[in-house]
Design a protein around this nucleic acid. Sequence first.
DNA 1: GTCTATATTCAGATAGAC
DNA 2: GTCTATCTGAATATAGAC
Lengths: 223, 223
Amino acid sequence: MPKRNLTTSKKAGAAAKRIDAPLRAARVAKVSVICAEAERQFAQYGFEGASLDMIAQTLGISRQNLLYYFPSKELLYIQVLDNVLNEWRLRMDGLVSGSNPEAAVRDYIRAKLRFSAERPAGSQVFAREVMAGMPRFREAMMARAMPAMNADVKTFERWADAGLVARLDFRHLLFSIWASTQAYADMAPQFACMLGKASLDEEDFERARVVITRQMLAALKPD
Amino acid sequence: MPKRNLTTSKKAGAAAKRIDAPLRAARVAKVSVICAEAERQFAQYGFEGASLDMIAQTLGISRQNLLYYFPSKELLYIQVLDNVLNEWRLRMDGLVSGSNPEAAVRDYIRAKLRFSAERPAGSQVFAREVMAGMPRFREAMMARAMPAMNADVKTFERWADAGLVARLDFRHLLFSIWASTQAYADMAPQFACMLGKASLDEEDFERARVVITRQMLAALKPD
DNA sequence: GTCTATATTCAGATAGAC
DNA sequence: GTCTATCTGAATATAGAC
């Protein structure tokens, strides 16, 4: 538990804020770089496989110093997952709405693929947590991802009522979009390997976008 | 290194075979149940997260006894991955061929989804290995999965030449089929959670099959 | 906030008796 | 083939000095 010295902690209101501001900012910045590196290593090695020692070493700090900011490995892990889910929602929320299904689906796929391209580690940490049976993040999932999905399903159903799209099982349609787009983060090493290159580039993501978009729009086309 | 005693190891030809047969059969059976349990635990906890102690305990044998059959954790892991890749190919090989694209795609998706339903752990171990950057199974992947993919891509291109299917980037089409179908193994806990149940059942897989098949066939329809 | 030192637990692997 | 005993290394976490 971090405790500021009496000199600052005793002061209240504006004065305290003025003094604490730079301290807090430094702390926030450090916490942020720790989370970024932890995300990378949890993604590659998993919760048990990653070690606080390695993470600290990569950052050039001591393991004990890391434990000063995050009292335990598990809390660091939870924080990483929380950040991922937050940015996920930030990027995806409200994309499926309005009255233009085609534009919505195009944007949705584009946003998800961009997330895969820009934040592959976040997606992988999430995938590993899911495969483990969501032992540490089930409630957060239920509370935050489920409402978002249900809202999207409802929107699709309204579109189907209006005859704008075919009537499919939209839950599984969403699963399929998630799977296809997230795979370009989670399975990137395999895909790159099979394309004969070291890693996926912008063109690969663009080609993926074209194919996946075509699939979804074609499937949604009213009979 | 296992060494049979002199009495049997000295004998050669048919006599030795007759004596060794039951021994070997017992060994093969034991190796098989060890692999099955290891697959389950590697799937759930990952390579580093799974422990030989836990695997042995679940099987009711000692860790040392387990190490008698597999000299190291890594060799056990490699064996598990090898088995997965083998059964994968056994089920999928040659499905994309002939002159009926629609039937081929339907069968391919059906077979992949069946694998996800029947062998989810195998798929998950594979996914974890990929996310780790394929540190222990890259050559095997390259040597065995890549030729299979290239053959399938060539078949699709022949179909496109004949005007039977639209001309897409078939590599990414295959990635998308893999992703959508494997997700019903790898992401099963998440999907089940979002469908409000403990685990996916036959009906879920059937609904997934309908949606995914529709996507792929619609995308492949010539313009 | 950062460091040194240490407690504790647990994992993989080997040796050798039976 | 299976067991007991043991070696070795690594990891999380805590205590306390500065």
